[in-house]
């Protein structure tokens, strides 16, 4: 994009600056729009599963419901509890929201359509998603109220626990793709299954890892059945209890942006990103962006589906699953994957 702005007669620095800013806006604004629509979809799916209609009043089929909610929340009064630590209380939702948008910088939407094609892309995503816990922890502490604090402690423990196994799963994928760059990881999946199927899921060593990754991404984004941080029967509304108005909305938007990010990571790492599901020439006629979007929406549908059907875990069960089941399993698969690649790709010579 820098060349385009240079052709408008700017010098290189200005062109780079303007191109980067417009690139950021071109990603952030559609992501926000997608978040609004995805919240609507979430409620519609939930409604359908529970045999209700879901939102159907605002706009055609209720599609503008999220915007109406946004406007409502925007017009509300911001309440800051008198016992709260004011600065951190206001900073927490901003951090959650910013961090949720930051990781999108390295997500490739199509071949070459990425803001920053850095060669540690996957590590960057891991690094940024590990920052997500701060917004919640700070919110819980700064609220100076017991339920948000419990929720913050749960969130911190939960996110750190599942990040460990996510890290090992990513190692498996990186071993296969031979790169940390997300574009190269997607390209590595072209024709991975017998030269026909695009995607690492079609692999006996990586399919179990995808299942673990999917469950861990539910836990990482605090979605049901792992939504213990906002378990309303125990903790009122968790870390959001004391928040209102825009500060609440920022948590909400950040949370859904994170969920979308995890869905797109599922797509990019295991289901071939923007590549069509099958390596067959006519399917490439559909733009890669559409495939990426379809797969991401599919994973989001699975997120809502699980929300509607699976009961909430108990906290000790959550910890047991993370540390005693997923961690040993992913460690075993790192050993298996690297052993298999050593035998097949590198000729078995140690």
């Amino acid at each position: 994009m820098t060349e385009f702005f240079q052709s408008l007669g700017m010098n290189y620095e200005w062109a780079w600056f303007v191109a980067t800013i417009s690139g950021i806006l071109l990603i952030a604004l559609p992501v926000m729009l997608a978040v609004a629509l995805v919240i609507y979809m979430d409620r519609k799916v939930l409604g359908a599963v529970m045999m209700r209609r879901g939102p159907n009043v605002v706009g055609p089929f209720g599609i503008l419901q999220s915007f109406a909610d946004g406007l409502k929340v925007f017009l509300q009064e911001t309440i800051i509890p008198s016992a709260a630590n004011k600065g951190i209380f206001l900073l927490a939702p901003i951090i959650t929201f910013t961090v949720a948008l930051l990781a999108w910088a390295v997500i490739p939407f199509d071949a070459g359509v990425v803001l920053a094609d850095i060669n540690v892309g996957l590590l960057y995503v891991l690094a940024i998603s590990s920052l997500g816990v701060y917004g919640i922890t700070m919110a819980g502490w700064a609220s100076n109220s017991k339920y948000p604090f419990f929720s913050a402690m749960r969130a911190a423990a939960q996110m750190i626990s599942y990040e460990v196994s996510i890290g090992f799963i990513l190692v498996c994928v990186v071993l296969y793709a031979n790169s940390f760059n997300l574009t190269e990881i997607v390209e590595g999946q072209r024709g991975h299954g017998f030269g026909i199927v695009n995607g690492y899921y079609f692999n006996l060593l990586l399919f179990p890892m995808w299942v673990v990754f999917f469950i861990s991404s539910l836990a990482e984004t605090q979605r049901a059945p792992f939504d213990l941080t906002e378990a309303e029967s125990e903790l009122v509304a968790g870390y959001q209890t004391e928040y209102s108005s825009m500060s609440f909305a920022l948590f909400w938007l950040g949370e859904y942006a994170n969920i979308l990010l995890m869905c797109s990571l599922n797509t990019l790492l295991f289901f071939g990103g923007w590549l069509p599901p099958i390596d067959w020439a006519p399917l490439y006629a559909v733009p890669g962006f559409i495939w990426f979007l379809l797969k991401t929406i599919f994973f989001f549908f699975m997120f809502s589906w699980i929300w509607a059907t699976v009961p909430r875990y108990r906290y000790d069960q959550l910890m047991r699953l993370g540390w005693k089941v997923f961690l040993p399993m992913s460690l075993l698969f790192v050993a298996l994957t690297s052993g298999w690649l050593m035998l097949t790709r590198y000729g078995g010579a140690a």
């Binding site: 590590l123 891991l126 690094a127 940024i128 590990s130 920052l131 816990v133 701060y134 922890t137 402690m153 911190a156 423990a157 996110m159 750190i160 990040e163 890290g167």
Partner: peptide
């Protein structure tokens, strides 16, 4: 540095 110190060590510290 971010994954290990900011993402894990400092979270426990803050905790």
């Amino acid at each position: 540095l971010i994954v290990v110190y900011v993402g894990a060590v400092a979270v426990l510290f803050l905790f």
